[in-house]
Design a binder for these strands. Structure first.
Lengths: 228, 228
DNA sequence: CGCGGCTTTGATGTTCATCAAGTAAAGTGG
DNA sequence: CCACTTTACTTGATGAACATCAAAGCCGCG
C-alpha cells in the first residue's frame, strides 16, 4: 500500500487497491475528498451532474426521489460498505435520485473521471464494480417487488424486519425514519403507518417507546410480513 | 470481423467485437448457441444456475418471479437489444427470476465463463457491460417506483403508453399480455384491469378489439397516467 | 358438440386514503 | 427558563378505491 494514502480503514481498499498498482492507487487516493454531513443534510441532489464517485464511510443515508406533486418516494436505505452512488453512476450524466443523511455521515468522494479511466483500462477493477452493482441493483429490485405485492400490515412488518436484520442487527433499535418517511418508503399514508404500529403494539408484537422499537414477537411479525 | 463468425446482424457485435481482437472474438463466437422459443415457452427458470449469457435476438419476453403462494409478478418486458440476462448475471450463482417468451423468440447464448474471463482481462468490454447494466437497472427501478405510486387507472394508462411508445412504436398494437398478465405486471386484479380498460373504452380513450388496442386519445391517457 | 380457459360484468365487503381534531414533543425568541 | 410556534405523532370518522366472490358469455380446440 502506498504510504501517502491514509485510507487504511476504508473498505474501498478491497475494491481498488487489490486491483491497482501503486501509481494508479495514488491517482485515486490523491484525488479523494472526505465530506461530513449532519443528520438531515442533502448529500446528492436529483438532477445534478454526476461528477464524483461517492462512497459512504460511516453513517446511514436514504436514497429517494420526488415526484411532480412534491411527494417523496424512498428507493432504499444504505449503510457503510454499500457503494452509495454506484447505482446509475455509469449510465447517465445526471442523478435521478437524491441522497440525504439519516444519521451523521461521512462520505469519501473520488473523481468520476478517474474511476472511468481506470475501469476502462483495468478489467479486474471493472469486473468488480460490475459485480457490486449487479448485487445492489438486484437487491433494490427484489425489495421493490416485495413491497409492491404486500398489504399495509405486511409492508410495515417487512420494513421493521429489514431494520432489525439488515441495518441494526438487533431486535431492539431506534427507528432511523420518521413515521412519514416510513410511509414514503412503503407507499402508504403516515396515518396508516401509525395505526399499523399501534395495532402491532396492542397485539403484543412490538413495544414502542417513541422512536425506539423492540420486536417482542418476531415469529408473528415474520408471518405477517410473509403472508401480507 | 472474423469470417468464421456468422453473426453479421447481431447487435452484440457492437459490444464485443469493437472491444476484442480476432482471437477473442473467435472464442466468443465459436461458443455461441442459438435457441428458438415459441410463444409461452420458458427461456430461463428462477432458481437455476447461471451458466449462460443470454441475449435476445428477436421476439419479446417477460421477466417475472413467482411468490410462495404461486402468484406471478412481472418485473419487466424486454425486446431485442436489451441484454436479457444482464440483470443479476454477475452478482450471484442462481437466477432470481424466470424469463418466458411472449412472442416467438430467438436467443443467442454465450458461455458465462467466457464472458467472465474476457471482462476480467478487458477493461473496455467490462466498462461497456457496466454501462449497459447500469442503464437497465435504472430503468427497471424507476419503472417500479412509477407503478408503485400510481392508482389503478394510472397504472393501466402507464402500461398502455409503455407498450405504445417503448415496445411497438405505434398508437395501435396487439397486446402482448393477457389481462391476467397485465394485472400481474402492475399489481392489481384481472377484473380491475378489465374494468379499467372498459372504462377507457366508454370514455373514448381507447378502441378495443380483443387483443388489439388503439389509443384514440393519447393526451387524455397521458394525463391519467401522470396524475394517477 | 362440449369442455376449459380467457374475458366481461355485477354485487358485496374489505382495505385504505382522506379529512378532522387533538396531544405530545421539539425548536425559537424573549 | 418560560411562553410561543412549529413539527411530529396519534386517534376517530367517513367515503373512495380496490379485492373478492359469483355468474355468465365468448372462443378455440379436441
Amino acid at each position: 500500500m502506498d504510504p501517502g494514502c491514509t485510507c487504511e480503514l476504508c473498505e474501498l481498499k478491497e475494491l481498488f487497491f487489490l486491483n491497482l498498482n501503486a501509481e494508479n492507487a495514488n491517482l485515486i487516493c490523491s484525488g479523494k475528498i472526505e465530506k461530513t454531513f449532519s443528520q438531515g443534510e442533502v448529500i446528492l441532489k436529483e438532477g445534478t451532474m454526476i461528477q464524483e464517485f461517492t462512497y459512504l464511510k460511516s453513517g446511514l443515508v436514504k436514497l429517494f426521489r420526488r415526484d411532480p406533486s412534491g411527494r417523496e418516494q424512498i428507493i432504499t436505505i444504505a449503510r457503510p460498505m454499500d457503494y452509495v452512488s454506484l447505482l446509475s453512476v455509469f449510465s447517465g450524466k445526471l442523478y435521478n435520485y437524491s441522497v440525504s443523511a439519516l444519521e451523521d455521515s461521512v462520505t469519501c468522494n473520488l473523481k468520476m473521471e478517474d474511476i472511468r479511466t481506470l475501469a476502462n483500462s483495468n478489467g479486474k477493477l471493472a469486473f468488480n464494480l460490475l459485480q457490486k452493482m449487479s448485487a445492489i441493483a438486484d437487491t433494490i429490485i427484489l425489495e421493490s417487488l416485495e413491497i409492491r405485492k404486500k398489504n399495509l400490515k405486511g409492508r410495515v412488518a417487512y420494513l421493521l424486519i429489514y431494520f432489525s436484520r439488515t441495518i441494526f442487527f438487533s431486535e431492539e433499535f431506534d427507528l432511523p425514519l420518521s413515521r412519514k418517511e416510513m410511509a414514503d418508503y412503503v407507499g402508504m399514508t403516515t396515518e396508516n403507518v401509525i395505526r399499523t404500529l399501534s395495532e402491532f403494539r396492542k397485539d403484543g408484537i412490538l413495544k414502542i417507546y417513541g422512536k425506539t422499537i423492540q420486536i417482542a414477537n418476531m415469529d408473528m411479525l415474520q408471518s405477517i410480513s410473509d403472508f401480507g
